[in-house]
């Protein structure tokens, strides 16, 4: 009500030809419009950047594979399991109790800028053969799945062709 009364007053003032009042009104309006445009553009920029952001997928894959590795360790007998999630876009390194997922060819170490990792528990009496997959150096058009195999006290991870 207060704002409306003020606006009404300003409109009356401007109709009387007081140029200073009109300029102040326009100035504030321009400021608001400019602020709205800046906020809208920065939000749009933020939302568009999310399209290419793979952080969620990397987080998901790291956790999923680490928990899967724990589960395979827990198997009381021999086991063969095909992991059917799409991992073609990502490189991965599974060794020393850590699953690291990366999506850049420049990835060098676990401390790399884009690597995401999650931990699994090693077992002194069961050996996991280190697994490294880097699709950026050896590109293959074939889609591949991960195959977990446990035989005796040895756990091995390999790539198999997607059926």
């Amino acid at each position: 009500m207060f704002i409306y009364a003020g606006a009404e007053e300003r409109r009356v003032n401007s109709s009387r030809g007081k140029r200073g009042d009109v300029t102040a009104e326009q100035l504030f309006l321009m400021f608001e419009v400019l602020l709205a445009i800046i906020i809208f553009l920065s939000l749009m920029n933020f939302v568009v950047s999310l399209k290419d952001n793979t952080l969620f997928e990397k987080n998901y894959l790291a956790r999923d594979l680490a928990l899967l590795t724990d589960t395979v360790y827990a198997a009381p007998e021999q086991l063969s399991y095909t992991y059917t999630e799409n991992v073609d876009r990502f490189g991965m390194n599974i060794k020393d109790g850590k699953v690291s997922i990366f999506d850049e060819p420049e990835w060098k170490t676990d401390q790399g800028r884009t690597a995401t990792f999650f931990l699994y528990g090693k077992d002194a009496d069961q050996q996991l053969e280190p697994f490294n997959r880097n699709p950026f150096t050896t590109s293959s058009p074939e889609k591949k799945n991960l195959l977990y195999q446990k035989q005796g006290t040895t756990v091995a991870i390999s790539e198999v062709k997607n059926p």
Binding site: F46, L50, F56, N59, R63, L67, G121
Partner: peptide, 30 residues
Amino acid sequence: FIKGFIVVNVNVQDAEEMVLTNRLLFSPTA
């Protein structure tokens, strides 16, 4: 509102607890 729709973190505490418990119970070396 926009941030609410963006999920980056994955909370797997419940699954982690279940896997760890089962690992201790089922693993031949535990």
